[in-house]
């Protein structure tokens, strides 16, 4: 069996280009520290996951971050930020695509987006505590933060930030989804017929 068909990977390539561009239009959310940035680059990945299956969504997340690393680079030389963005994106889109597959309705989508936000918040809080924040201190050569300090940063900034980011993306995606739904259904029907 072929890993992925031509039509799918061409779409993944183009959506990744879109995601990369959207990633460059990032902005900080006012109350949070400015290394936490919001962008809408997970939206093309979510479309890919819904139209072509979860693997396509994961690939868009992967390519977008590889492009970002190759074209923009990382302040630490090692792509920690990109790896964090990739995990956050995957944690957000996978639940949505699984739940929407089971319940393809407006309600299913809302439920999926809520589940995606919750998963992203949970996974990013845990991983920041154990992996990403320690990795930053290691590569920046800063003295390691103590466990309570890291915990305080995770609870006061990272957790609410990801929750806010998830809600924002859910709102924008829902607005998009309502407008694009007839078109998406037509596409899905055409794909089944082909």
């Amino acid at each position: 069996m072929k890993f992925i068909n031509t039509r799918t990977f061409v779409a993944v390539g183009i959506l990744s280009a879109g995601a990369y561009l959207l990633m460059m239009l990032n902005f900080p959310l006012p109350p949070f520290p400015n290394f936490l940035l919001v962008d809408f680059s997970d939206i093309p990945a979510l479309f890919a996951a819904l139209l072509y299956g979860p693997l396509a969504g994961v690939l868009v997340e992967l390519l977008k971050n590889v492009l970002n690393y190759v074209l923009v680079g990382s302040a630490t030389g090692v792509p920690i930020g990109q790896i964090a963005n990739f995990t956050a994106g995957v944690a957000f889109i996978l639940p949505v695509s699984f739940i929407y597959r089971k319940a393809a309705s407006r309600k299913g989508m809302l439920l999926g987006l809520a589940a995606g936000t919750a998963t992203m918040v949970l996974i990013m809080s845990v991983l920041n505590y154990y992996v990403f924040l320690p990795a930053y201190t290691l590569f920046l050569g800063a003295p390691a933060m103590s466990a309570p300090e890291t915990k305080a940063l995770v609870i006061s900034a990272i957790l609410p930030f990801n929750a806010a980011k998830g809600v924002l993306m859910a709102v924008v995606f829902m607005l998009l989804f309502l407008r694009l739904r007839p078109w998406l259904q037509k596409q899905a029907a055409a794909r089944r017929a082909a």
């Binding site: 990977f9 390539g13 183009i14 990744s16 280009a17 879109g18 492009l67």
Partner: peptide, 13 residues
């Protein structure tokens, strides 16, 4: 190839 397609379409998009 996906990566090459992305690079090709960044300016277009």
């Amino acid at each position: 190839l996906m990566m090459a397609i992305s690079l090709r379409f960044i300016p277009t998009l």
